[in-house]
Computed example of a mutant assay.
Amino acid sequence: MVMQGVWYLVGALAVGIIIHFDAKLLWRITPFLYVIGLAVMLALLKYYDPTLAASTGSKNWFKIGSLTFQPAELMKIAYILMMALIITKHSVAHKVRSLKSDFGLIFKMVLVSIPVFGLVLAQKDFGTMLVFLAIFAGMFLMSGISWLIIVPVIVAAVVLGGSVIFLVTTDAGRELLTHVGFKNYQFARIDSWIDPFHDPQGKSFQLAHSLMAIGSGGMLGTGYNVSHVYVPVRESDMIFTVIGENFGFVGGAFVILLYFILIYRMIRLCFDMNNEFYAYIASGIVMMMLFHVFENIGANIGLLPLTGIPLPFISQGGSSILGNMIGIGLILSMRYQSADKQPIRRTRRA
């Protein structure tokens, strides 16, 4: 609890500093933040914490004494800024958009994403990889790319996702997926998602007990800090089970309502901004937080497979708190600085 409070104070300090960053400063420092982020992620492949890697299967944590830190949480912010920079530069350079210019933008977005995705895959952090993909998808949709491109991409993504789910349900399909990088623990998570009670004392222990904990909370919950069902890592990835058990359906619904208000306000900001660079940054932060909330709560209630994604501002973890607080700081800086900024006109299509 003490360290959690310290991280909130550090995050609040970061917000207080970032709120004074204007668009020009963000524009100038974004490439440096992106390169520094890649360098730190690259260093992590050698200097990761072996103890956490052995227990989680992912090489995504630094450890300095008793302090652990996950650089990917800050890389998400650097990635959002870099993507916003690329999209804005392209829009300004191509005031009349065409399919050719749209494909050029997609190429630039993919080029910026490849090093990030490659490093995350090398760290074997599937959950974080999904977050980066969600950020990419959200900014892709907001970038003004023609629906003649977006619709086929969405259809292809749905077909690919459906095909993977189908392959997971067959032995031959699993063998094929193993050859392309799927691991046994990932199959176990999907099995638990499909049938949480098929092995409640074994591979599906976490999800089965998560559902029992939330169910035991009923309408009003068991009371603050009164838990009767043991759920592993309930302080971080499974924190929503604590909310559901302690405060029931009413408490869980209230938390979801707060997230809805926060995300709604950020979405409104995307459309209210006259500065296109700000709008793209806001859209990336919205997608990051929206995916975190949807995936974490969805996994806790059995709607989605477990991926180890924390719940923003609630899950234990300093790097997650700091990354989300920086995101909020950027949103607040847009409001704080918007009165002094000249609008960047949105482009029109030929």
Rank of each mutant, 00 (worst) to 15 (best):
K95Y: 03
V96Y: 07
L99T: 14
K100W: 07
D102C: 08
F103H: 07
G104T: 13
L105S: 03
V112M: 07
V112D: 01
V116N: 00
A122I: 07
A122Q: 09
A122P: 05
Q123V: 05
D125M: 08
F126D: 02
T128P: 02
T128N: 11
T128W: 06
M129Q: 14
F132R: 09
F132D: 06
F132M: 04
F132Q: 09
L133S: 14
M139Y: 03
F140C: 00
M142P: 00
G144P: 04
G144H: 12
S146C: 05
W147L: 13
L148P: 00
I149M: 02
V151E: 01
P152D: 12
P152R: 15
V153D: 00
I154D: 02
A156K: 06
G161F: 07
G162Y: 07
V164L: 10
L167V: 04
L167F: 13
V168A: 12
V168F: 07
V168P: 00
T170C: 01
D171M: 09
D171P: 05
D171H: 14
R174W: 01
H179M: 12
V180T: 14
G181L: 11
K183N: 02
N184L: 15
N184D: 13
Y185T: 13
Y185S: 08
Q186W: 09
W193N: 07
W193P: 02
I194D: 01
D195L: 03
D195M: 04
K203Y: 06
F205R: 14
Q206T: 14
Q206M: 11
Q206W: 05
A208C: 04
A213N: 06
A213P: 02
A213V: 08
S216F: 05
G217C: 09
G218K: 12
G218S: 05
M219C: 01
G221H: 13
G223F: 12
Y224A: 12
Y224D: 04
V226W: 10
S227Q: 15
V229Q: 06
Y230V: 13
V231P: 02
P232S: 09
